[in-house]
Design a protein around this nucleic acid. Structure first.
Length: 891
RNA sequence: GGGUGUUUAGCUCAGUUGGUUUAGAGCACUACCUUGACAGGGUAGGGGUCAGUGGUUCGAAUCCACUAACACCCACCA
């Protein structure tokens, strides 16, 4: 079979690995290598971002597993409270059921059923990609024991005073009808209007005749909640309004004019309307001046009956309506176009309404301190490091975290309210029974029926921030064997978009809970974009279906394609052509084995037929022996490079080194050197070395391209089902022979030069050429046999003089000549070529001499640098002399 | 309004504390090569005043300053 077809073998090997339990980890004497997956939404489906993120994790985990570490990759899913609840609500709506028609219990039943049907699909899809997760450890953030841990943390933090309840201005999502944390609000620039509204003065006009104040606002509907007009005390325009009151347009309410230097005189008219219920700043001013708070909205964003106007109208419809009504009433001075930033809900996409409400918060300042230090002093390494800045900035100005959500899908807040008759207040406890006990300490007459549990659930991220600990049950049992062995985890691979949501909070909780970092390093991936640089999205339809890609190119192909084009923190410009390249690489490996297998089988049959004990086995050829020595060094040099790339998390560079090692050095040079002449068979020692090299290459490549390497691992030898590449020992770096590598490169350059001559003069490989050389220290005489084979030479001869009819070239300082068969040399062309070369070399020499003639360079540059320049000079001078010599010979 | 990052070949990117033959890789491109692993292959080759300006230095893609374009993050000016 010529071409490799991945689909048939990929599922076979994945099942085999699972069956053998290779991905399952339990604590043992080895060093652990742990990754916890960033848990995808339980109802999500695989997209390209997951492919990027999880391939990276798998590469790291597989490499660790092959490097003698006890690798453990914990998979799982997130309950994603808002997103999932929204999906369930939408599905219920399709069936004609409103959420409000259901009891909490009934709704949760639907939600759990939804999860049973659609949940975990994404984890199955990850298997197709080859993800080597320890599936026996799969967790869901709402598993009973995970939820128990969440409640325990809530109770603990509350007892420590790190969780409190209070009335604050929060971000209200009118679609989901819940509060959101600051991080869940996305600000976008919007084209809006700035309305200039006239607030008539109560009582007599001013002495100068003015009878109103013009106020600029982007949200005219909020005048319903106006309680004051504020101006800057230093603003002379408004000094005369001191102690006066104005009338809210349409509403007719009388409100005071107050003075505070918060107001910018330059903006609008310098007068600001104050609506404490619906603007954060207004709320602060309201508190300062003891103003009333008039909340005009229902939770769904419609106008409530507080004022009695526009009742039930949607906030945006009312905005337009009220603007018209104001205009009709002659209370609009003017309307200008205006661009401002509006907050939108990350989940539902609707405009956020600032709303005053009672919520639960986590006090962040104390938690942030050790977490900030750990990142800034690289106890936790950020890759790339630029995210340290972002992190520093956020952590330094951190605000308290609103953790209550007015939803049902999630962990219900473990707080129980006491009846007013018992003094009110609440108790926080892990269970209802415990809560009752605590309540009875306050009032012994209380029964379970008297207690009312808080209706709200916790922010999803309140369970996520425990993830590196909770997946090992370290919240409920901080001293269990798993958590002690696997924690702190090794690497976290995630996107920078959740650095605040998740990464920062995990670090904070890690230190709070265990006094230790949750992971050693965080690798931030970029965003997957299409090749035009656009973010992939459903709306644009520019996101390929990963499963279709895998079907087309194989998981191996998709993985290689993805890994070739990713560097930490940089966006990936995804192009399907990369997958093609990945699949092509698989094919290359497949066919290389095809060739080697042929030699092996050929050698075996020769040996069995030709088993005359009297005949001495032929010795291995010099070329073969040298090729084996060289490739051994080449492989070791590459291993060292790959190690260093991995140490710096330069995954695509590591893959590129392996790719070139296989494609260029192994396939292009090594195999071509040892390839037996047509009709003859390979030497058994060469075959053995070649197979060993091939196996080592498979191992190096396995983390990136796991399936085909496993398939071929089993082709190179008879192996037991447990002898799999995925649990084999990665070759370790041995000292490479640097001299040999350098000499081989000189030989390669010589071959290339000769091929170039063949190309220019149309001399096919089958026509042997003779090579003449003026040997010097840069002539790799010992590699003569390889040179002859690769360049198609009949002989290599040392000469002192040269014939003008010979074609010539120089490698480093060595002069080579090739007598041409017939027709001879085109002298003019040859001279032109030589003159061009001479001009280049002289130009080059000039730049070198410029340095060497400079006293200050010679005296201040390090000796090694100066010595190198001197070598450059002597080499260039030698080349120039040689070229001049040739030119004069040709003339 | 603040902050961070990016700007190197047609495309995607390397270039590690300034000195490694007057800039590299992969892909794409051009020419040529089809009986012996692989045309998803092979060989050879073209292509860049390292965004701009100024500075530091014996020496700058690399360090500094400013400018421009783009990207992202943060922020309560209605």
């Amino acid at each position: 079979m010529k071409n490799y077809n991945p689909s048939q073998i990929e599922s076979k090997w994945y099942e085999h690995w699972l069956e053998r339990g290779f991905f399952h980890s339990t604590p043992d004497h080895r060093k652990p290598y742990t990754i916890v997956i960033p848990p995808p939404n339980v109802t999500g489906v695989l997209h390209m971002g997951h492919i990027l993120n999880n391939t990276l994790q798998d590469v790291l985990v597989r490499r660790a597993r092959m490097s003698g570490l006890n690798a453990c990759w914990v998979p799982g899913t997130d309950h994603a409270s808002i997103a999932t609840e929204a999906k369930v609500v939408a599905r219920l709506a399709e069936q004609g059921i409103a959420k409000s028609d259901l009891s909490r219990e009934e709704f949760l039943e639907h939600a759990w059923r939804w999860r049973e049907e659609h949940g975990g699909m994404i984890l199955k899809q990850l298997r197709t990609l080859g993800a080597s997760c320890d599936w026996e450890r799969t967790k869901f953030t709402m598993d009973p024991e995970m939820s128990e841990g969440v409640l325990k943390v809530f109770v603990d933090l509350h007892r420590k005073g790190l969780i409190y309840r209070g009335v604050r201005m929060v971000n209200w999502d009118p679609a989901a009808q819940t509060a959101l944390s600051d991080e869940e609000v996305i600000h976008r620039e919007m084209q809006g209007k700035l309305y200039f509204l006239r607030y008539k003065l109560e009582g007599a006009p001013l002495e100068d005749g003015r009878d109103s104040i013009i106020v600029a606002t982007t949200r005219p509907e909020t005048i319903l909640g106006d309680v004051a007009v504020c101006v800057n005390p230093n603003d002379p325009r408004y000094a005369a309004f001191k102690d006066r009151r104005v009338i809210v347009p349409l509403v007719g309410r009388s409100i005071p004019v107050i003075y505070d230097d918060y107001v910018t005189m330059e903006f609008g008219t310098g007068a600001l309307k104050i609506t404490p219920a619906h603007d954060v700043n207004d709320y602060v001013l309201g508190e300062k001046f003891g103003l009333e708070v008039i909340d005009i909205f229902n939770p769904d964003g419609t106008i409530n009956d507080r004022v009695g106007l526009y009742v039930g109208g949607d906030r945006f419809a009312v905005r337009d309506q009220i603007a018209r009504d104001l205009q009709n009433a002659g209370l609009v001075e003017k309307i200008e176009d205006y661009t401002n930033k509006v907050g939108f809900s990350e989940r539902t996409g609707v405009a956020i309404e600032p709303k005053l409400s009672m919520q639960w918060f986590v006090r962040m300042e104390g938690l942030a301190k050790p977490a900030l230090e750990a990142v800034m002093n690289d106890t936790i390494r950020f890759v790339p490091a630029k995210y340290k800045n972002t992190y520093n900035h956020w952590m330094s100005g951190i605000k308290d975290w609103c953790i209550s959500r007015q939803l049902w899908w999630g962990q219900r807040i473990p707080a129980w309210f006491l009846p007013a008759g018992s003094g009110g207040g609440y108790v926080v406890a892990q269970t209802a029974e415990e809560a009752l006990r605590l309540a009875q300490e306050k009032d012994p007459a209380l029964t379970a029926a008297d207690l009312r549990q808080d209706e709200d659930v916790l922010d999803t991220w309140f369970s996520s921030w425990l993830w590196p600990i909770s997946v090992f049950d370290g919240v409920r049992h901080p001293d269990n064997a798993d958590i002690k062995y696997y924690y702190p985890t090794s690497d976290l691979v995630t996107g920078p978009d959740i650095i605040f949501f998740w990464v920062a909070r995990m670090i904070m909780f890690g230190y709070e809970s265990r006094g230790e970092r949750p992971f050693g390093a965080v690798y931030f991936t970029g965003i997957v974009r299409d090749k035009l640089g656009r973010k992939m999205s459903k709306q644009l339809g520019n996101s390929p279906d990963p499963l279709e890609l895998i079907d087309k190119y194989g998981a191996d192909g998709v993985r290689v394609g993805m890994m070739l084009s990713t560097s930490a923190g940089n966006d990936v410009m995804f192009d399907e052509a990369m997958c093609e390249q990945g699949a092509g690489f698989g094919n290359k490996i497949w066919n290389a084995w095809n060739l080697i297998r042929g030699w092996r089988d050929g050698a075996a049959s020769v040996a069995s037929v030709d088993s005359d004990p009297a005949s001495e086995p032929a010795p291995q050829s010099t070329a073969d022996r040298l090729a084996v020595e060289w490739f051994s060094s080449r492989l070791n040099a590459a291993l060292a490079e790959i190690d260093s790339h991995f140490a710096g998390y330069r995954i695509s560079d590591a893959l590129m080194v392996a790719y070139k090692l296989f494609w260029d050095d192994f396939s292009g040079w090594y195999l071509e050197i040892v390839k037996p002449a047509f009709g003859s068979s390979a030497h058994s020692a060469t075959v053995a070395s070649t197979v060993r090299f091939f196996e080592q290459l498979l191992q190096i490549l396995h983390p990136f391209i796991p399936f085909i390497t496993e398939e071929l691992w089993h082709a190179t030898a008879d192996r037991t089902p447990d002898d799999c590449i995925t649990v084999s020992q990665m070759p370790t770096f041995q000292e490479a022979d640097g001299t040999l590598l350098a000499r081989f490169d000189l030989m390669r350059e010589t071959v290339t030069a000769i091929r170039s001559i063949r190309r220019a003069r149309n001399i096919p490989m089958r026509d042997q050429l003779d090579l003449k050389v003026v040997p010097d220290e840069n002539f790799p005489a010992e590699l003569d046999s390889i040179l002859q084979k690769m360049a198609g030479l009949g002989s290599v001869q040392a000469v002192e003089g040269h014939d003008p009819e010979w074609e010539s070239f120089i490698v480093k300082t060595t002069r080579y000549f090739v007598p041409l068969p017939e027709g001879g040399l085109d002298r003019e062309a040859e001279l032109a070529k030589l003159r061009e070369e001479l001009a280049y070399q002289e130009g080059f020499l000039l730049t070198v001499m410029k340095k060497l003639d400079n006293e200050r360079f010679v005296s201040s540059a390090p000796p090694a640098v100066v010595a190198n320049e001197q070598t450059k000079r002597s080499d260039a001078e030698a080349r120039i002399a040689a070229i001049k010599d040739r030119i004069s010979a040709l003339k």
